[in-house]
Amino acid sequence: MIRQEMKVEKMKSDMQLTEQRVLDALEKLKTERSEFNKDLMKKEGDIEVLKAKMDEELKRMKVKTEETINNYSKEVQKIQDLTFTPIVAFKADTVTDKSLENNKVFVYSNIIINIGDAYNKDTGVFVAPVSGLYLFTAQVCINGNMKVYAGIVVNGRLISKTAIGDKSWWKCYTIDAITAVEKGNEVSVKCTNSCDVSDNLGETSFAVNSFSGILIHKTV
């Protein structure tokens, strides 16, 4: 009977020990699970931080790339503007009002060519549509026994001038100028000095007064 009781006590002790071990194992699992969840949350937080940093870096790279592309496009456009020269050319002849006067603009009313539509036949003035290097030429014909001074003028500045005159016979004289002109500058041919109102330009069916110009190279 005593032995039986001892066996029961031992079984009871073993069961309690086993139960405790199970409880300890469960508690350990609970603790490990809690630690795992904490570690997982930390990793998730780290991932979110990393994701935010990557998003910020991608945004920065996108802005930088767009800026680089924009600057590159501007450089390409600048090169295209420098290499492409539009056609600007005009020629007009026949001066309707042939009377002379100091600083009077010669108005050539008959347009032969006007690519770019920059020459005005009503004023005799060419207005540069683009900045660049231009070539201008003018033919001025006067009656005999006269002497006057004429030239090509850009925005009021005389850039090419000549003396015109002959004691006995009327003649035609050529004036030319290669010059840099800014967009919007006005170019014309004027009688600059010794232009007496009693004198007149000469013109026949064989020789006429004329004014022409052409854009050689565009500048930016």
Score class of each variant (00 low, 15 high):
137 T>P: 04
198 S>L: 09
187 V>C: 02
89 A>R: 04
214 I>S: 07
89 A>T: 12
205 S>A: 13
212 S>K: 13
113 I>K: 08
120 N>R: 02
36 F>C: 11
93 D>A: 07
128 A>E: 00
87 I>H: 04
187 V>G: 03
134 Y>C: 02
38 K>T: 11
103 N>G: 03
134 Y>F: 06
79 I>A: 06
37 N>P: 00
26 L>V: 10
181 V>I: 09
54 M>N: 15
13 S>Y: 10
176 D>V: 09
71 N>Q: 11
124 G>E: 04
171 K>V: 05
171 K>N: 07
116 G>W: 01
91 K>M: 08
37 N>F: 09
210 S>A: 15
73 S>P: 00
217 H>G: 07
220 V>W: 06
89 A>W: 00
108 Y>P: 01
199 D>L: 10
211 F>V: 10
43 K>W: 08
199 D>R: 08
19 E>K: 05
160 S>P: 05
93 D>P: 00
29 L>S: 13
4 Q>I: 13
184 G>R: 03
195 C>E: 03
27 E>K: 08
128 A>N: 02
198 S>N: 12
206 F>K: 13
38 K>L: 07
142 I>F: 01
203 E>F: 03
33 R>F: 10
216 I>H: 07
119 Y>K: 03
139 Q>W: 06
28 K>N: 13
170 W>L: 09
89 A>K: 03
133 L>N: 05
101 E>V: 03
195 C>N: 05
18 T>I: 10
1 M>G: 14
45 G>K: 15
18 T>H: 05
11 M>I: 14
94 T>P: 00
78 K>C: 03
218 K>N: 07
6 M>D: 12
139 Q>P: 01
124 G>L: 06
45 G>A: 15
160 S>I: 02
134 Y>L: 01
47 I>H: 15
77 Q>S: 09
78 K>T: 06
168 S>P: 08
17 L>W: 10
77 Q>P: 00
46 D>T: 12
152 I>N: 04
173 Y>S: 09
125 V>K: 01
97 D>H: 04
214 I>L: 12
138 A>I: 07
51 K>A: 15
37 N>E: 11
18 T>F: 04
45 G>L: 15
141 C>M: 03
63 V>F: 12
71 N>V: 09
104 K>F: 02
41 M>N: 14
52 A>P: 07
215 L>T: 07
6 M>T: 11
149 Y>T: 14
147 K>R: 10
175 I>S: 02
47 I>F: 15
191 C>V: 03
197 V>E: 13
3 R>N: 12
20 Q>L: 08
147 K>T: 14
59 K>I: 09
218 K>T: 07
96 T>K: 04
84 F>K: 08
36 F>Q: 11
159 I>G: 04
211 F>G: 05
163 A>Q: 14
157 R>K: 10
115 I>Y: 06
71 N>Y: 10
29 L>P: 00
123 T>I: 06
118 A>D: 03
134 Y>S: 04
163 A>C: 11
54 M>K: 14
216 I>M: 11
104 K>E: 00
196 D>I: 01
108 Y>L: 07
200 N>P: 00
149 Y>P: 03
81 D>V: 06
182 E>D: 02
88 V>C: 06
154 V>F: 00
30 K>L: 07
11 M>V: 13
161 K>R: 10
50 L>V: 15
42 K>D: 13
